[in-house]
Each structure stands twice: as C-alpha cells, then as structure tokens.
Design a protein around this nucleic acid. Sequence first.
DNA 1: CTGGACTGTTTAATATTCTCAACATCATGA
DNA 2: TCATGATGTTGAGAATATTAAACAGTCCAG
Lengths: 182, 182
Amino acid sequence: MSLDIGAHLKAVRQMYGLSQRELAKRAGVTNGLISLIEQNRVSPSVSSLKKVLDGVPMALADFFTLDLERQSQVFFPKEELSNIGAGSVALRLVGGNLAKRSMSILHEIYAPGADTGEEMLTHAGEEGGVVVRGRVELSVGGETRILGAGDAYYFRSTLPHRFRNVGREECEIVSASAPPTF
Amino acid sequence: MSLDIGAHLKAVRQMYGLSQRELAKRAGVTNGLISLIEQNRVSPSVSSLKKVLDGVPMALADFFTLDLERQSQVFFPKEELSNIGAGSVALRLVGGNLAKRSMSILHEIYAPGADTGEEMLTHAGEEGGVVVRGRVELSVGGETRILGAGDAYYFRSTLPHRFRNVGREECEIVSASAPPTF
DNA sequence: CTGGACTGTTTAATATTCTCAACATCATGA
DNA sequence: TCATGATGTTGAGAATATTAAACAGTCCAG
C-alpha cells in the first residue's frame, strides 16, 4: 500500500468523473481541503476522509484495499520445492520461482516442539490448510485448538495466529495463503 | 463498518495484549493520543492512525476490513469438512460455509483408477497442491507427469488439466485454488 | 477580446488533533 | 502502611487539519 493518499484519492475521484468542487459539495467539505489532500499537503483525519469517500461513495476499507497497479513451470518434484524453512519448521514452497502467483502453497513440517513463536503472526489476506499427519496446536484470534490428521483451518490472516507442535511426533501440514506471503 | 474507530482500535490492541503505553512506544506516538482515539474523543489523522497500526503491525486496509463482531469459524474438524466428492474422487472443502473466501482449499482423495475425466478441466484463476500420499498422473496443457508423495504442482487453471490415479492405492492431495472454484 | 463558468491552487483564520506532563486508580510486594 | 510500577485519563499548549475567500488558468459563448 502506497499510502499516497493524495494520488489515490485523485484517481478515485477522476474514476468517477468528479471535479474537486463537485466532490466537495457531495462530501460536505471544501474544495480546498480536497486540493490539499490530493497534494499530500495534509493527512486528512479519518472522519474527513470518510466524509469525502461518502461523497463518491466508497467505503474506507475499499479505498485502502484498492490496488491501482495490479508460462511457467507446472510440476514441482519435491527436490525442487524451494526450501524456506527456518529452525524446526521446514517450509517447502510450491512455485517459488514463479514471477506472479496469487497464492502461496506450502508443505510444512513441524518438528516436535516446533513453534512459530510467542510473537503472534499477522499479515494481510487469508490462509487455510489441512493437517496431514501428526497434531498441531493452533491459536487464532484468542481461540486455541488442537488439530489432528484430516482436520483443517481457515481464517483471515489479519487475526493474530500461532502454530505449535505440542506432540511428540512430526506434524505435516499443507497450507495455502492468498495473497502470497512468500 | 461501524467507524467506531475507538472500540475497534482498542479491540485490536487488546488482541495483541498491548497496553496503551506499549503500543504508543512502538508506534511513535503518545499514550494520551491512543487513549483519546479509543474514547472517540478525536478522529485521528490517517497518518497518525497509520503510525499506530504500524506499531501492531496492521495495514490500514486490514484495520478497516476487520469485522470484529462476525468472527467466522476458524477450526474445521474433519467431520465438519463439506464433502463435495463425486464418484471415486472424495473432495473435502475447507470452510465451505464461509460467506466469502478468496480461495478454495480441498482435501482430495482419489480411489485407485479415479479420474477427473477425459474432458479436460479449464476455468479461471490458478491452482496448486501437494501430493501427500500415493501417486497421481497430472496432465496440464499437453504435458503429463506422475507425481508422488511430496511432489507438487502449480498452474493457471485456464490451461486444460486432468488428474488421474494410475496406481493401485489411494492418492491423497491437498490443493488450493484462487479464486475459489467451490 | 471579454465575460462567465469551469478548473485547481493558495493564504490567513479557525478548529481540531496531538504532545507533554500531571493525575487518579489498581495491583504487588517489602 | 507505604512504595513501586503498572494501568488509563485529563488539561494546557503546540502542531496540524480544515475553512472561507481570493487567486490564476483554461475553455467556450457572445
């Protein structure tokens, strides 16, 4: 996310074919403010930005989500999977060398006691997976459960989460996240 | 979206177990500001809110997207996976009851001889997966390979493709496709 | 060319956010 | 009991967002 609110707003406004004054009127603010915002000479308060976007109309979430900017190998023998594991968690990424992917698919192996760490993980997007072997303790947004072979999960990755192999055996998971985290 | 920024921020902060001061320090703002924001006594400027969220860290888009009330199901015991299998291919969908997903994650089990059909599959998006057990013959865009446990694949789903269990044992795959096909 | 209606920009005054420091409260422990 | 360190809150002032009004440019009709 660019946080170039100015250019962003300008693009949105022009997408709707509105002038600064026209948008200002609909939004209940002054044209000057819109000019200043578009030049990044001020950082609008959330309430003002909301007023402005209401004039379009567009939700705040959509405004910040909007991305203005946005063959290859098919088969990946296990030897060719990019090994991006760290410590006691082995991560094998499917399609690591692909230029643009819309997902990360991972083959994860947690050694006994392996842990993604006390500091909870958070990032944009969604992720899910299936436990293939072993048992894993998964905490998501305050809730904690133990999942065994065949069990699965799916959540928005913005929720703080943590994986921990609490068993005595290896735990194997195949997971996917979109947009790609690796 | 409630635009109850205050309660929203407070919830996020507490989800991470941070005090106002602690978050303030990470964010480079004062604890007082966070207090005022959480009480909705000010409407933070976007730049301040960004600073605060950077301390968590969380993207603005995620902050506004986050729906605190309707936290959907996260854990899916295998019995609760939607069974959408047809014929000799058992498909278990992760998160089938979720309103909006950006992916389909499937736990697939191919019986010996199982086949997605002579008519090649094609659809929008991308898909990939990891073979967990057994062997499968995968054809994509004219190329054909046999994948065993630990092998993987990733391709654009517009390429005609077909899965076939050519072995004498079951074959187990965990796959994902975005956008969701189920 | 002249006036009017549009465009976006700028300035000075006003309103709001934000900081700094002090305050009140609660818990822990000497 | 008193001290200590944590919590969130508050008030006055500094910093910044926002307004209102004037400015400059473009385009088109008269």
